[in-house]
């Protein structure tokens, strides 16, 4: 961001919004928005408590599980769809439906199928993240230079070699982009899962704080969640930039 010719440090827009938040809170316009400073005080008070660490742990397990399956299932499906016309025509309509479907509406069905525990929450998380990973991987594979494929074929690449040594790497910039968006969607998935399926983790904290009108607690947990999602997304963005040197010259 630039201001009157000066380059402002990254994320200085956050400072402006933070300031606005603080002022709104100090004016006591609504109980819904307590001052940001109060939120941070609450944040430091709850962050070490057993209730919080337990919630963080439960959420992390469900989130990492869900993201793991979204990635290890999504990437191969995307590669196969990009390579195989028949599979692509079979699956693409479904992927397109699910990528934009209101998945929250499916959660009750998942509960019936898979019970009220961690399993359903992980599946919900996977379902939120996987579709965009499939679509991006597919797009990445479809734009692979034909002659790279012919090159590996002409030197006798086995299908497995072609998959792991050419397709995956050639599509990596798009795959990472898909994973980054998928991970952000999975954050949404894990919280919705925890709210709807079984009241555990951050979902339980949100439920507890919101129903007791503990707004500064509510915002404190939301800020933690945002910070975690932001860190992961920045890390994936960093990986994406690391492969961008060849994204342009494939």
């Amino acid at each position: 961001m630039w201001f009157k010719g000066y380059k402002l440090p990254n994320m200085s827009s956050l400072l402006i919004w933070g300031l606005l938040w603080e002022i709104t809170g100090q004016l006591e316009l609504t109980f819904f928005v307590p001052p940001l400073s109060e939120v941070f005080v609450t944040l430091f008070n709850i962050i070490g408590t057993p209730a919080f660490t337990k919630a963080l742990y439960e959420t992390a397990v469900a989130f990492l599980g869900g993201v793991f399956f979204a990635i290890v299932i999504g990437i191969p499906i995307g590669i196969f769809m990009g390579r195989n016309r028949l599979l692509d025509e079979l699956l693409l309509p479904w992927v397109n439906i699910f990528v934009s479907a209101p998945l929250t509406a499916l959660v009750p069905v998942l509960m019936v199928l898979f019970g009220f525990g961690l399993k359903s929450i992980i599946i919900t998380t996977t379902l939120f993240g996987i579709w965009i990973i499939i679509l991006n991987t597919r797009a990445g594979v479809r734009q692979i230079n034909r002659s790279l494929i012919e090159m590996s074929t002409s030197f006798g690449a086995s299908p497995m070699d072609a998959f792991t040594k050419v397709y995956f790497w050639a599509a990596l910039p798009e795959i990472l982009g898909g994973v980054r968006i998928g991970v952000i969607r999975a954050v949404k998935g894990v919280i919705i899962g925890q709210l709807l399926i079984s009241i555990v983790g951050f979902g339980a904290l949100f439920e507890l704080y919101a129903s007791n009108f503990l707004m500064s607690h509510f915002w404190a947990v939301l800020i933690v969640l945002f910070a975690l999602a932001f860190t992961i997304s920045e890390f994936l963005g960093y990986l994406e930039r690391k492969v961008s040197y060849y994204a342009a010259s494939r």
Binding site: N145, E150, S154, A157
Partner: peptide
Amino acid sequence: RAFVFQDFALLPWASVMRNVAFGLELR
């Protein structure tokens, strides 16, 4: 038979060494 491609068909993420050795790697 070995093929030399009009557009080179090099792996952009691999060094010259790995690219040159890639045919042997696949074998």
